[in-house]
C-alpha cells in the first residue's frame, strides 16, 4: 500500500513546493517583452544587487512580443504582475487605456529626455531601437527615406514587415499621427501600387535584403546591426535626415507599473533599476545594440548617438490612441 501511494504523494509534494513562495515581500513579478537573452541578465543583476527575487514571464518571437500583453489583459481583474517591461511604449499606452497600469515616475529617469516618458508617469522609456533602412550593397540606387517605397525605381525591390505586428505597427501609427489619415492612407496605397513585398517580420526583411533578393527595407536597428556584425553585404541608412525630412522613428523600451500588483514597492525599485544609466550601458554593449537615452552613456559603434540623429517628433500617447483607430485600415490593407 505504501508503495502504491508513494508516486502521487511525491508528485503532490513536489508540485506544492514548486508553487510555494508565490507571494513574498522579497519578490517582484515582471512580465517581459524584451528578448529574454538580453533582459534576463539585467534582472539577475537586479536580484544580486537588491536581494529581491525576480519572477519573470518572458515573451516569444513566435508570439510577436504580444503573448504577455494578452496575459496582462486577461489578468486585468486579478493582476499577477507588478511590472511590465515592454519593448516599445505603444502597447504601454494601450495598458493605460485599459486601466491596467498605474503612474510612477522613477527617479533614475531624470536624465532621459521628456519625449521618451509619459508626462503622467504611466510609462517610462529607456534604451531605444531606431527604425532604419537596411540597404543591400548590390542595390543600384540608395534610398534616402520612406518615400523611396513609392519610387518606381524600387518597384518590386523593397520589402516591409507585416504592419499588423511589432514595431512596424507602431511605425504606421506614427506616420498616421505625423501625416494625418489621408496622406498615410495614400502611402499605404502607394506601397501596394509599387509592389512592395510584405514579410512576416523585421528579421525576415533584413535577411531578404542581406541575401540580395530585395534592395532595402525598414527594420529595427538591432536587426540591421546584427546583419552588419555577421558581415552580410548591407548598409545602414538613417531615413529622412534632410531639412524637410521627418527623421528617424525611435522606439524606446518602456517600463510600466501594474495597478494592483502584490509587490508594488519592489516593482518601483525594479523600475528605477531598469531606467538607470547602468542598465542602458549594459543594453548598449549587448548584442541588441540598443541606443542609450541618458546623455553620456556610450552608444554601440555601429549606431550614431541619439543626439546626432534627426528623430521623428511624435507623441507616443497619441500613437497608442491611433493604433486602435488605424487597425481596421491596416487589417484591410494586409487583407485580413
Amino acid at each position: 500500500m505504501r508503495r502504491r501511494i508513494r508516486l502521487p504523494v511525491l508528485l503532490a509534494g513536489l508540485l506544492a513546493s514548486a508553487g510555494c513562495g508565490a507571494r513574498r515581500s522579497t519578490t517582484v513579478v515582471v512580465y517581459v517583452s524584451e528578448d529574454q537573452v538580453f533582459s534576463e541578465p539585467i534582472l539577475k543583476d537586479f536580484e544580486k544587487e537588491t536581494g529581491i527575487r525576480v519572477r519573470a514571464v518572458y515573451d516569444t518571437e513566435e508570439a510577436k512580443s504580444t503573448g504577455v500583453m494578452n496575459r496582462l489583459l486577461a489578468e486585468k481583474n486579478n493582476p499577477q504582475a507588478d511590472v511590465y517591461w515592454a519593448n516599445e511604449p505603444i502597447r504601454a499606452g494601450l495598458l493605460r487605456q485599459q486601466g491596467i497600469s498605474t503612474p510612477y515616475s522613477p527617479g533614475n529617469a531624470k536624465g532621459i529626455p521628456s519625449q521618451f516618458k509619459d508626462p503622467q508617469g504611466y510609462w517610462t522609456g529607456f534604451s531605444a531601437r531606431a527604425r532604419l533602412l537596411v540597404v543591400s550593397k548590390t542595390a543600384a540606387h540608395k534610398p534616402a527615406g520612406l518615400q523611396a517605397y513609392l519610387d518606381p525605381r524600387w518597384r518590386g525591390r523593397a520589402v516591409i514587415a507585416n504592419p499588423l505586428f511589432g514595431t512596424t505597427t507602431a511605425q504606421m501609427a506614427a506616420l498616421f499621427s505625423l501625416w494625418g489619415d489621408q496622406k498615410a492612407k495614400q502611402f499605404l496605397a502607394g506601397l501596394r501600387a509599387n509592389q512592395v513585398k510584405l514579410s512576416t517580420g523585421n528579421g525576415e526583411s533584413a535577411d531578404l535584403v542581406a541575401s540580395g533578393a530585395f534592395d532595402f527595407s525598414l527594420v529595427d536597428s538591432d536587426d540591421a546591426v546584427s546583419r552588419a556584425r555577421q558581415g552580410r553585404p548591407i548598409e545602414i541608412v538613417y531615413p529622412d535626415q534632410g531639412e524637410d525630412g521627418a527623421g528617424v522613428f525611435l522606439i524606446p523600451n518602456a517600463v510600466v507599473l501594474i495597478k494592483g500588483g502584490a509587490n508594488t514597492e519592489n516593482g518601483k525599485k525594479l523600475m528605477d533599476y531598469l531606467v538607470s544609466e547602468e542598465t542602458e550601458r549594459k543594453l548598449a554593449a549587448a548584442d541588441c545594440a540598443q541606443i542609450p537615452l541618458h546623455p553620456g552613456v556610450p552608444t554601440p559603434p555601429e549606431i550614431k548617438p541619439v543626439d546626432r540623429i534627426k528623430t521623428m517628433k511624435v507623441d507616443y500617447a497619441e500613437i497608442a490612441a491611433r493604433l486602435t483607430a488605424i487597425q481596421p485600415v491596416l487589417k484591410e490593407w494586409v487583407g485580413y
Binding site: A18, A22, V37, Y58, D59, T60
Partner: peptide, 27 residues
C-alpha cells in the same frame, strides 16, 4: 506553459521558445 506557467515556474519548452528570440544558435 507559455500562457499559464506561473512567473518563475516555466517549462523547458517555454524557456527554449523565449530564448529563441535572438538567442545564440548554440544555446
Amino acid at each position: 506553459p507559455l500562457l499559464l506557467a506561473p512567473p518563475g515556474l516555466d517549462t523547458l519548452t517555454a524557456r527554449t521558445m523565449t530564448l529563441m528570440a535572438n538567442g545564440a544558435p548554440d544555446l
